[in-house]
Amino acid sequence: MSGFTLLGLVGVIDFLTGYEYSFSVFYVLPIALIAWASNQRLGFLASLIGAVIWLIAELMSGRSYAHHSSPIWNTLIRSSLFFTVVILLTKIKMLMQRERELARTDYLTSAVNSRYFKEIAQLEMYRIQRYQRPFTIVYFDLDNFKEVNDQFGHFVGDQVLQTVVSTIKKRIRKTDTIARMGGDEFVLLFPETNDKAAKSLTTDLQGYLLTEIQRNHWSITFSMGVLTCQAAPNSIDELVTMADNLMYSAKSDGKSTIKYATYWGNRDHREWQTCVP
């Protein structure tokens, strides 16, 4: 709306100053604003409106033409210029968005990468400090993944990782996050999820994963460390380290195991363990 309003304002000023003064760049600016802030379709609409406003301003200011087709030609040329600006800007915007996505996403699995996960987790820590709403992170890796890689090759190993991520994405909320931390290690972030919900959720997720893995005849299980935060840890590194330690504790107690813990800040820290066959 600001862009269209500005476009109309430029037309009024163009009319008041007369056709002796060129206002071409001032028409381009609101059109560029509309194209960048919205989409290409609205940018094209703004281009047409801008060209028509420019024509009306010239005609009302008393400009005469040598031939009656001249204003039509000028309007077409101006529209083409505006369309070109819109196409270029929307293309640049799309490339920038794509570059931003690539910088945040693991190229193999389409999970978010560790750097972007830390940004998301930091926001969740800010939120728990303000609203005291719990969240849960799940750190897990794939038991026997190296053996599968060695036996079947890296192509099959890549398929395993992709299958794990795609299976989880089908089972979690849009507000949840799955990130690949490196190799066969992953972390899940569940906002507003307490320990009871976390236990039910991760048990179900592990079951879905095992079913999918067994369907493909891969000898892989999952060891998970599940940390529910009722208070914010001191840093993201501390948060990830606690969940990572839980996962390794679960792995040392036996593969295909989930270990749970709840972080209470300075008040208390309690943990318990559940084994899933």
Rank of each mutant, 00 (worst) to 15 (best):
S166G: 01
A179T: 08
V165M: 13
T163C: 14
K169H: 11
K169F: 03
T193V: 07
F145K: 06
F155D: 12
F140G: 07
N149V: 14
G153F: 00
P191F: 14
Y139G: 05
D150N: 05
T193A: 04
L189P: 10
F140L: 15
G183D: 14
D150M: 03
D150V: 07
R180C: 12
F145G: 09
V160T: 08
V187L: 04
A179F: 00
D176G: 13
F140I: 10
D150L: 05
I172A: 11
T177D: 00
E192L: 05
G153D: 08
A179P: 05
D176L: 02
K170P: 04
G183I: 02
D141V: 10
P191N: 10
V148S: 05
D141N: 15
V148K: 01
I137P: 03
F140P: 06
A179G: 08
K169Y: 02
R171W: 06
I137S: 05
V165E: 13
K169C: 06
L188A: 05
I168E: 04
K170D: 14
Q151K: 12
V187C: 13
V187W: 00
L142E: 02
H154A: 11
H154G: 09
H154K: 10
D150R: 01
Q159R: 11
F190N: 08
E192F: 06
D184R: 02
P191R: 10
L189T: 13
I178F: 05
G183W: 02
L142H: 01
M181L: 15
Q159M: 13
T167D: 08
P191Y: 09
K146E: 08
G182I: 11
R173I: 10
A179R: 00
F155C: 06
K169W: 01
N149F: 10
F140S: 03
E185I: 04
G183S: 07
D176R: 00
T193W: 05
H154V: 11
Y139F: 15
V156I: 15
T175Q: 12
V148T: 15
K174Y: 09
N144V: 06
F155Y: 11
V156L: 07
F190C: 07
D141Y: 04
V148H: 00
K146N: 07
I178G: 14
R173S: 12
N149D: 12
Q151W: 00
H154Q: 12
Q151S: 15
T167E: 13
V138I: 13
E185N: 09
I168T: 10
E185S: 04
T177Y: 00
N144W: 03
S166L: 06
V187F: 01
V160Y: 04
L188C: 14
F140V: 11
F140Q: 08
G182P: 02
R180F: 07
K174I: 10
Q159L: 14
G153R: 01
F152Q: 09
I172G: 05
I178P: 09
A179Y: 00
I172M: 12
K170V: 03
V187M: 11
L161S: 11
G157Y: 01
Y139K: 01
T167M: 09
G153A: 07
K174P: 02
A179K: 00
E147Q: 15
E192W: 00
L142A: 14
Q151M: 13
V148P: 00
K169T: 05
R180L: 13
T167G: 10
Y139M: 15
N144H: 15
N149K: 11
Q162L: 03
T175E: 13
D184V: 08
